[in-house]
Amino acid sequence: MRFPALTLLAVWCAVASAGTDTSLDPETGLATWQAETGGIQVRLTQISPDQARAFYLARGFSPEAAGRYARECVFMTVVRNIGDTPVEHRLADWRYVVAGEPDRTIRSKAEWEALWKRIGVSEAARIAFTWAQFPDTQTFAPGDWNQGMTTYSVPRGGRFDLHFVWQAGGKPFSGILEQVRCADENA
């Protein structure tokens, strides 16, 4: 179900911030941002350009196609239902905001798929790509969780706030991951 934009903005304002927990993996040097609010946990972990490139090269992408994906700011995204009510997310309703710029939507799997078809990425590679991305929409029962990649058009080292939204019990909710930072080129 699509949420009206005004409703979203109102909810964002109402929720403000439940607090973003940040951690750094000492082995990889890559950072994670996590928020828990309203029975949901959302976590973004940096994926370096080299890692993103290597993952898709290993799954049949050409160097050009893998390089195109790796130009984006890629995060491993985990959503977990830590409450006692089913929750449903719709990635198209999420927004990310770079300071001083209009909010943006996350590039959808369908948009990527169209690009991959246009530049001749094989079907097998496209299937791997599709399943490696965070699902467009999914319902999580209590205890359920999932992970996948999401991408953001943010410069290396740039920061953004991610406004994530979900539904539970027929009502919309939202939370914020604040000051998420895009991995450096040589992370």
């Binding site: 082995e27 950072a31 290597a54």
Partner: peptide, 27 residues
């Protein structure tokens, strides 16, 4: 920054094709 578990390391080890040894050492 608060240190947490190495879940991210596990994910990324698998992602980059580092394979099971890296993954299992963090499990």
């Amino acid at each position: 920054m608060k240190m947490r578990n190495s879940l991210a390391g596990l994910m990324l080890g698998v992602l980059t094709g580092l394979g099971a040894p890296a993954a299992s050492s963090l499990a």
